[in-house]
Structure formats: C-alpha cells, structure tokens
C-alpha cells in the first residue's frame, strides 16, 4: 500500500522546498505573511470521525469534505487520520496561503461576508478558502499555481489603500 509520500513536501530533503509566494512577497509589508508551507490535509469521508489535535484546525466544507490545518508534520497527520477511517491527502503543496490584516483590504479582494467565515469563494478573481482569526486578521488559501498573481493582487490592493509602496 502506497503512503503517497510523493504528495508530501515534508518528506522532501531539507532545503529542497520553497514557497510559491516567495518572489511576490519579497519585501512585502507586515500586513501580509506567507503561510504556504504550513501543513494542510484534504479530508474525504465521514469528517465527524476526525479529531483535531493540539493546534490543529478542522474546516468542514461539507459532511464528507474538509481541510485539516496542522502545525505538525502533515505526513504523520495523514497516517493518523487514515487510521481513523477517513481518507486524507497531504495538500500542503497544493495551496498557497496568506495571512492578511485589515477588513478593508479584504473587502477590496473578496465579496465573501467577512463575518461568516470560514467560507470558500472568490478572492482576487481566484477560488479561495478564507478563514478569520482574531480581530481583523484573516487567512486565505488559494491554488498554489495561482498564488503568485494573488499575492501581487494583494500588494496592489494595499497600494490602493496607501498601505504599501
């Protein structure tokens, strides 16, 4: 039985991985942080059987689909979740993640209702998963292949608000 190691950036040799946003966010202001290499699992099956560990966050998209954000090794988390009878796939490499600050900035980039997050929807013309943390702090996850352009759109929106050069 394959463990799908080839999906897991954490299984790559140290120093061999890089964020898809590192060029776009080089010198970015503090309102934007790169979360791209933080662990994410895509879950399929009876999500109710998944127990989030310490520091983990379970986001349900539907009763049978969801994401598990984990601060630990996602490859190990995949094994743990699969052992619980739920299919899990390491999606760390699939998503580019951004931590953003400011409601107005978010309103320039998405029409999602910011008081009703998490939600999936358009962000900078790209499908995204948007989560809200404390206060006006948000996390946005987009397909990594579109991440560079989304990051540029975020910086442009900041410039429009005169919050970035």
């Amino acid at each position: 039985m394959t463990e799908l190691r080839f999906l897991s950036p954490s299984q790559c040799a140290e120093g061999s991985t890089a964020s898809p946003l590192r060029r776009a966010l080089d010198g970015a202001p503090e309102q934007v942080r790169d979360l791209s290499l933080q662990g994410v699992l895509e879950l399929r099956g009876d999500i109710a059987r998944v127990e989030a560990g310490e520091g983990e966050e379970l986001v349900r998209l539907s009763p049978r689909r969801g994401f598990l954000f984990t601060p630990g090794d996602p490859f190990e988390a995949v094994a743990r979740v699969r052992a619980a009878g739920v299919l899990a796939y390491d999606s760390t490499g699939a998503l580019a993640g951004l931590a953003l600050e400011g409601e107005q900035l978010m309103r320039r980039l998405t029409d999602l209702e910011l008081t009703k997050l998490p939600a999936a929807g358009p962000f900078a013309r790209v499908s995204a998963l948007v989560l809200r943390d404390e206060g006006e702090r948000f996390r946005v996850y987009v397909p990594q292949e579109l991440g560079h352009d989304v990051a540029l759109a975020v910086l442009d929106a900041l410039a429009g608000l005169e919050l970035a050069p």
Binding site: A18, P20, R23, G93, A124, R125, V126, P143, Q144, E145, L146, H148, D149, V150, L152, A153, D156, A157, G160
Partner: peptide
Amino acid sequence: GPHHEPARRSSIHF
C-alpha cells in the same frame, strides 16, 4: 476594476 488576470504558473515557472 484592477488589471489582474490570474495566470497559472507551475512551481518551476520562474
């Protein structure tokens, strides 16, 4: 609106 035309780029693109 803003001039953004999202393009997909592979992780090797640059």
